[in-house]
Design a binder for these strands. Structure first.
Lengths: 326, 326
DNA sequence: AACACAAATAACAACGTTATTAAAGAGAGA
DNA sequence: TCTCTCTTTAATAACGTTGTTATTTGTGTT
């Protein structure tokens, strides 16, 4: 591998001069700089960041740890976070297991942003993270954790969705999905809050997939009257439910209204543009990027932050059919 | 940050002894080792891999570069590649832009595995990659490229699918999707090869999404007779098409047969388990992992490798209806 | 008590940078 | 010509490791 010293030799200067030239320092003559750069290029020089970072103590590298790549929300969040960090002149690299997170820490990444799923899947990580040299920010938790974190108020999101549907006169509201207990509980509470009598009949258990949402509606118990509105636990379930409803002959939103959790952009491209509720992924990414950078720079800031959900109205919610409204 | 020297001081030994102890060298007395390890632990020592890698010249780190996180095939391939590399005692980290790929190269990652999409999206990368210090393997190309690569024989995959359907008597075979030209061309060729008269009517243009596949079938031109079999360009299109076909009242596979491209495990969990064709992602990951490691170790090997598609028969293909068969 | 020999530890030179300090060279003013 | 600045370049000490070579310590033999 060609190093700074090889270039120095070829150029007949000291290697410290080469270093400065490569960093475009004003301390070296323009002409010398040009000559050195040209030689470096011709020799195929590649910076060794290990050495650079070792002495500078900074890497401008952030690790993003996550575990379930399949979820569309991750793809979205990852891209947003990448964008936000790039704007702050940081590079981001993704790790999908505790091993690699640890590796990035030991390679002196300046910061680590960890999606809550990763720590809940690997609980031992939680206590370790606090002791690591890299600044750590956990995002997407339901509850406060003993580390700097960004919490999503999913309870509020569900409440908002119920309130919104209620304001359109809906009285029979179904909830599709069962994998996130907090949302189910929040739903039952919100329904009661809205002055309705919650019933287990309104809970439609479903795997958190398109398939799951589809089946939950398509093969729902026939003895239970169809709700006039549904809330889907996530984007996939919601899309599946939409498909099933249409297939069963319901018109959306005239007969049945629909709100999906998670504000993914492509929800607006469904057969009926779907009203969604959830954290703004852009906001989350921007906040996380700024916060982790502030932590690295030693700037003060709260260890806990809550991202409030927003509701994005689209075409899938309408007034409840007259005979059911109230 | 606590370093090896701090530990040495506290333990009253030289720092070279500490280094050896931390690496469990047989050259240091067991008791000393234990004592040093204990002190290191209590001081919260964290290895500095920058320094270690700088002197050792090896990182055992592989970068995986890809661009479109949303595609399910990536999630799958990423996990497989991670698994395969972990088995070889390498760590893998993901980069989603040329910037980060370059960063990993400059951080002296031993190898880079690049998904073809990334180089085709950033063409200038191609020529640079060859000059980098990290060994580079491009995977998933359609055509040979001037770098070590793993090519997918998509043409053969389509041909195999057509042949398979033909063997079940199908004569009117539709192809859904238009974003990958090579597959479209291969389809028309294969149809002709199979002794059928290719017609543009059999091409159903569609976005490479679930939505796309659904719409292509649901809103197909009514003047064209329904084919007795379809091949879907990718897994999403195929699932969308399946849904549309069922919705239109076709029985699968009695009325219409269906083959989807890309062997994703979850295709078997569709309403009707879908027969798929495509590269075995497990094979691709295993091959790529071993090849890049061989390259790093300087072992010889061909710069070009073709992964042949395999067809996984499931329930979605059956003999063509009698009146149409031939 | 002197010696050989093994076991354990210490010393030190890398690795490829950056950053700080020292030295050399070039003009300008007297 | 000499000194004083300013510009440019050189020298050198870090950074935190590993690996190699040197030194010390301990043990058994004569």
């Amino acid at each position: 591998m060609v190093s700074i010293k090889d270039i120095a030799e070829r150029a007949g200067v000291s290697y410290s001069t080469v270093s400065k030239a490569l960093n475009d320092s004003p301390l070296v003559k323009e002409e010398t700089k040009r000559r050195i750069l040209e030689i470096a290029r011709s020799m195929g020089y590649q910076r060794n960041l290990l050495a650079r970072h070792l002495v500078s103590g900074r890497t401008r590298l952030i690790g993003f740890g996550l575990v379930n790549l399949g979820n569309p929300i991750f793809a979205n969040l990852t891209i947003q976070l990448h964008r936000a960090l790039a704007a702050l002149d940081y590079r981001m690299v993704i790790a999908i297991s505790p091993d690699e997170i640890d590796l990035l820490n030991q390679m002196r990444a300046d910061g680590l942003v960890i999606w809550a799923d990763l720590v809940s899947r690997h609980p031992h990580l939680m206590e370790e993270l606090g002791r690591w040299q890299a600044k750590t920010l956990v995002i997407g938790t339901d509850e406060p954790v003993p580390l700097p974190h960004v919490r999503f108020d999913r309870r509020a999101g569900i409440a908002e969705a119920v309130r919104y549907l209620r304001s359109f006169g809906h009285r029979r509201i179904g909830f599709i999905g069962s994998s996130q207990e907090i949302k189910v509980r929040a739903f039952l509470e919100a329904v009661e809050q809205a002055g309705l009598q919650p019933s287990p009949d309104w809970l439609y258990p479903a795997e958190p997939t398109f398939e799951g949402g589809y089946r939950a509606i398509r093969y729902a118990r026939p003895d239970i009257p169809m709700p006039t509105a549904f809330i889907g636990l996530n984007n996939l379930i919601t899309k599946g439910a939409l498909r099933a409803l249409l297939e069963l002959g319901y018109r959306i939103p005239q007969d049945v209204s629909l709100i999906g959790y998670d504000n993914l952009p492509d929800m607006q491209f469904a057969e009926v543009p779907i009203t969604t509720v959830g954290p703004s992924l852009e906001e989350v990414a921007d906040f996380a990027a700024h916060r982790i950078v502030d932590m690295i720079d030693g700037k003060p800031g709260a260890d806990a932050h809550v991202v409030e959900p927003i509701l994005i109205p689209r075409a899938s919610v309408e007034r409840a059919p007259d005979r059911d409204a109230g």
